[in-house]
Measured scan of single mutants.
Amino acid sequence: MTEYKLVVVGAGGVGKSALTIQLIQNHFVDEYDPTIEDSYRKQVVIDGETCLLDILDTAGQEEYSAMRDQYMRTGEGFLCVFAINNTKSFEDIHHYREQIKRVKDSEDVPMVLVGNKCDLPSRTVDTKQAQDLARSYGIPFIETSAKTRQGVDDAFYTLVREIRKHKEKMSKDGKKKKKKSKTKCVIM
């Protein structure tokens, strides 16, 4: 069974824990209790493949930012979460993405942009803004509501699919490099 290491990042209060708990335990946590770091595991079937999701729910508070490099190193894919009623959390996505790329030393890291709290009427981040940002990053965008469960499975499952595509691409690139290195030079 394939294991996928997913990391949920975003500013404090955007609903990272609520999304994760909704996926794992099928219930909505409405009281806000700032996370330092929590880890969850769940076995699911995605596109006919049974897999184990190892999900790291991270601290959004700035005082825990020193811990970010460590979990970013171990993560295979990242859910970059903002709240649709919090423009600052949307603007912060850029910083999370840049930090992930720096730590992973790669421009090509599996990510999904997630606009959470889409059940709320007080939207300050337009869907088109988020779609445009995701398009500019070359990553999928999904709106979710941890409260109603809308888009929750889709967000995590899409990230797994992005990781699969990335692994497939990397193995193809690896095979191309191996083929090239088999060419021999004969000096007579």
Rank of each mutant, 00 (worst) to 15 (best):
T2R: 08
E3K: 02
E3M: 08
E3Q: 05
Y4E: 07
K5Y: 02
K5I: 02
L6S: 02
L6W: 02
V7Y: 14
V8I: 09
V8L: 08
V9S: 08
G10K: 03
G10D: 04
A11Y: 07
A11G: 07
A11C: 14
G12S: 07
G13S: 09
G13A: 11
V14N: 08
G15P: 02
K16D: 01
K16P: 05
S17H: 01
A18K: 06
L19E: 12
L19R: 02
T20M: 06
I21L: 06
Q22Y: 01
L23R: 02
L23N: 15
L23I: 04
I24G: 06
I24S: 11
Q25T: 14
N26P: 00
N26G: 05
H27S: 07
H27L: 09
F28P: 00
F28I: 01
F28W: 07
V29Q: 07
V29N: 08
V29K: 15
D30V: 06
E31L: 03
E31T: 07
E31D: 10
Y32H: 07
D33W: 13
P34L: 03
P34S: 00
T35I: 01
E37D: 06
E37F: 00
E37T: 00
D38R: 00
Y40H: 04
R41Y: 03
R41D: 02
K42F: 04
Q43N: 03
Q43I: 01
V44N: 09
V44A: 08
V45A: 06
V45D: 03
V45R: 10
I46K: 04
I46R: 09
D47K: 05
T50N: 02
T50G: 06
C51S: 07
L53T: 05
L53M: 09
D54Q: 01
D54C: 00
I55L: 04
I55H: 00
L56I: 01
L56R: 00
L56Q: 01
L56H: 01
D57M: 00
D57T: 00
D57F: 00
D57I: 00
T58R: 01
T58M: 08
A59N: 15
G60I: 15
E62C: 13
E63W: 01
Y64E: 11
Y64C: 15
S65C: 07
S65M: 13
S65P: 15
M67H: 00
R68P: 04
R68L: 14
D69E: 09
D69Q: 03
Q70E: 02
Q70C: 01
Q70P: 01
Y71K: 00
Y71H: 15
M72H: 14
M72N: 14
M72R: 01
R73D: 07
T74K: 01
T74M: 14
T74G: 14
G75K: 03
E76N: 04
G77C: 14
F78D: 07
L79W: 03
L79D: 03
L79A: 09
C80T: 03
C80K: 01
C80P: 01
V81G: 07
A83L: 02
A83Y: 02
A83G: 13
I84D: 15
I84T: 14
I84Q: 14
N86F: 02
N86K: 11
N86D: 14
N86H: 01
K88Y: 07
K88C: 09
D92N: 07
I93R: 02
Y96V: 10
R97A: 11
Q99V: 11
I100F: 08
K101S: 10
K104N: 14
K104Q: 14
K104E: 05
S106D: 13
S106A: 11
E107S: 11
D108R: 08
D108G: 07
V109I: 14
V109E: 05
P110F: 02
M111F: 12
M111L: 10
L113E: 05
L113V: 14
V114L: 11
V114I: 09
G115T: 11
N116Y: 02
N116R: 03
N116D: 13
C118H: 12
D119K: 03
D119A: 12
D119R: 02
L120V: 12
L120R: 14
P121S: 13
P121G: 13
S122Q: 13
S122H: 10
S122L: 08
S122R: 08
R123V: 09
T124A: 11
T124E: 12
V125H: 11
V125M: 10
V125S: 09
V125A: 09
D126Q: 08
D126W: 08
D126K: 11
T127W: 07
K128P: 09
Q129H: 09
Q129N: 14
A130Q: 07
A130G: 08
A130D: 08
D132G: 10
D132I: 08
L133Q: 09
L133H: 14
L133Y: 09
A134E: 15
A134P: 03
R135V: 12
R135L: 11
R135A: 09
S136C: 13
G138R: 14
P140A: 06
F141A: 01
I142V: 06
S145F: 04
S145G: 09
K147R: 12
R149L: 03
Q150L: 11
Q150H: 03
V152H: 05
V152D: 05
V152Q: 06
V152L: 13
V152I: 09
V152P: 07
D154G: 08
F156K: 01
F156R: 00
Y157V: 11
Y157G: 07
V160L: 06
V160P: 05
V160Q: 05
E162Y: 08
E162C: 05
E162M: 05
I163V: 07
K165W: 06
K165T: 14
K165M: 07
H166L: 12
H166E: 06
K167R: 10
K167W: 10
K167I: 09
K167S: 12
K167Q: 09
E168D: 12
K169F: 13
M170L: 10
K172Q: 11
K172R: 04
K175E: 12
K176N: 07
K178G: 13
K180W: 02
S181E: 10
S181W: 06
K182E: 09
T183Y: 03
T183W: 13
T183D: 14
T183P: 06
K184W: 09
K184L: 01
K184G: 14
C185I: 08
I187V: 13
M188T: 12
